[in-house]
Amino acid sequence: MSNEYSEDYLRKLRDAVERFEAAFDAWMATQVESDHMSSRGLLPTVWTDDGQDEAEVRKLELNVAEAAGLAARAVAVTGAYINIAGIGVIDPIANWSFMSSPKAPLAPRDVRMTSANVKGRLDAMIADSEATAEAGIPSFAPAQFHPVVWAGAAAHWTTHQYRVAVREAAEGLTVHWKERLGRNNVDDTVFWQQTLAPGTGEPGRPKLVWPGEREDKTVKSMRGGLEPLAKSLNALATGLNLTVRNVTTHTRAELSEQEAMERLAAYSYLARLLDHCEIDRGEADEGAAGSGSGNA
């Protein structure tokens, strides 16, 4: 796998994850550990055990926070995010403190599993970096693609399953927006056609709207020489679903790394355009159109 990170940098990231694990384990020794089943989704998944020195616990918490600041970069590089229903893509290392909140979206197991996963992916990237350096191949970093796209692709990309990586990235982006808009009741292609179609949103059928006045040059080109960007965005999303997602889902023809990177780059560009869109939920959410950005 090509990447733009040096072997030394990747090893430093791995060391940062190990330091986070040590700090996290030290703090967890002062906590009562639960999980989502036991907390019934309403309570924290960790809380301070009886008899602990509060000053010492605070010190250990700060140690974890500092270590997480360094280790979280490793999640971005490896794409080891997790997807939580109703929230979306999340970095368990950067957001470890969520475990202490009511309705905690994370449990200690999520943090530990992510740390182990990140180390494994970094080991694979270090091996690839060594091979690339020996072969003198120019570097490229698919980990810099849009985080939703890379989160779907990363686990399969590091094992060189490029067709599956592209398929999961394509499906992941669609699932991400279906969940945000509450549209899990429609097929993928129809979802994009309806969501990016002209007109205003309706209750139960919101739309993603390119921001700005229709006369703006970012929305409608000069002299009418090009399609309005909003219409082109619909065509881009629908076209990618038909030519990339459907092909990688319904065929078994493997992709080369170059072919997969080109497809992921197209989806990453689409994802960043969608981030600029505003959500129009129709009359039931009057006044919300234009006030809520689609930024992921």
Rank of each mutant, 00 (worst) to 15 (best):
A67D: 02
I279A: 15
T238N: 12
A153C: 03
P198M: 05
E262R: 13
L70I: 00
I137P: 00
R205Y: 08
A67V: 01
G239T: 00
A65H: 05
R40C: 07
W157E: 07
E283K: 09
W47T: 08
G136F: 10
P147C: 01
A235M: 04
A116D: 15
P142F: 13
G182P: 07
Y269E: 01
R281L: 11
T189W: 08
G41Q: 11
Q194V: 01
S34M: 06
V164D: 04
T251L: 10
G224P: 03
H156V: 01
E227H: 06
A65M: 03
Y9K: 08
N246H: 10
E61N: 14
L106N: 11
T45I: 04
L106E: 10
W210L: 14
I90T: 14
M99R: 02
I87A: 09
E254T: 08
K220C: 03
H160W: 06
E259S: 06
S2E: 09
T174A: 15
T78Y: 15
E168A: 06
L270D: 11
V46I: 08
A284V: 07
H160A: 11
L229T: 02
Q194F: 04
A22F: 00
P198T: 06
V111K: 11
L208E: 00
Y9E: 11
A71E: 10
E130F: 05
R180C: 04
E202W: 05
A80C: 10
Q144T: 13
G212S: 13
V111A: 14
A104E: 03
W27F: 06
P105N: 13
W210E: 05
L43C: 02
A296R: 04
K207H: 05
L173C: 08
A67N: 03
H176C: 01
K119W: 06
R19A: 03
A266F: 09
D110I: 01
T200G: 12
M125F: 15
D187G: 11
S291D: 05
S34N: 06
G199M: 03
N117Q: 12
E21M: 03
L173R: 08
V164R: 11
D285K: 12
K119T: 09
Y269Q: 00
A16M: 05
I279R: 13
K207W: 08
Q258H: 09
L240R: 04
V219R: 15
